[in-house]
Design a binder for these strands. Structure first.
Length: 228
DNA sequence: AAAAAGACCAACCGCCTTCTC
DNA sequence: AGAGAAGGCGGTTGGTCTTTT
């Protein structure tokens, strides 16, 4: 059901609820002409009665060219699980490593498949241990390198325009984690390949996924095998 | 066949950060 | 420097479809 929202302190009433084809068309025309910015101007220039926030969300999650439709591949699922183990609920960060997938999609996937199931006893503990091991191990490696050797070139390779060079030189925990992740992806050591099998052993991993499709115990047993 | 439960996903909300003036 | 606006993000909700009982 579509409703109309009245904003506090404003006479403007925004339409809410599912988007129509006509609205999608208007929004697409607006973005094609004005680019992905000035979302608050969408209603003024396009005739849409949607808030800027709503318009941006619709574009980013549904209309933007290059978005992949359809179910996540076993490969993508594996990457999500492993990046979540490393990064936690940083959905937008995880999405940067999965071109064509949105943070909302990844978040929905995670909630549907894993959130409700409490694997804390074994699965989650293994993930936490792995994350700690990897960060500790890679931190050592990063500290031994010049920062410019890994930070910016890896950022650009992932199409990440948000992180600027000046920001990357700062040693915030988030930047360090990104740098570690990028370093792992670009220069995998044998140990990395052991810890992140889905990223380096495609054939092995997808065959396992196909054999055990739909079985969440795969991940528990996989971690157990690796930890053995 | 029908009701209940589960799965999936689009969209909204509120908070935080960044930008602009 | 600071206030307000805009953008971005994670959490949550609610509707629809599918599966199970």
């Amino acid at each position: 059901m579509v409703t109309v929202m009245k904003l506090k302190g404003s006479e403007k009433e925004w339409r809410k609820g599912p988007w129509t084809h006509e609205e999608d068309k208007l929004l697409t025309e607006y973005v094609n002409f004005h680019g992905e910015r000035n979302w608050s101007s969408v209603s003024r220039f396009s005739g849409l009665n949607r808030s800027g926030k709503s318009s941006r969300l619709r574009w980013v999650n549904y209309l933007k060219p290059g978005l992949k439709k359809g179910p996540l591949t076993p490969q993508e699922q594996g990457i999500i699980i492993e990046l979540h183990a490393l990064l936690g609920n940083k959905w937008s960060t995880i999405a940067r490593y999965l071109p064509g997938r949105t943070d909302n999609e990844i978040k929905n996937y995670w909630r549907t498949h894993f959130k409700k199931k409490d694997h804390k006893s074994s699965h989650n503990k293994n993930l936490e241990n792995r994350r700690a091991k990897m960060l500790s191990y890679k931190q050592q490696t990063v500290n031994e390198q010049q920062p410019q050797e890994y930070d910016m070139k890896s950022m650009s390779s992932h199409g990440d325009t948000k992180r600027e060079p000046s920001i990357m030189t700062e040693t915030t925990p988030e930047n360090e984690e990104h740098a570690i992740m990028d370093l792992i992806l670009q220069n995998p050591t044998l140990e990395d390949q052991f810890y992140i099998p889905s990223m380096y052993q495609e054939t092995y991993f997808s065959s396992v996924c196909q054999e055990t499709e739909g079985d969440d115990s795969l991940w528990v047993s996989l971690w157990d095998q690796l930890d053995a």
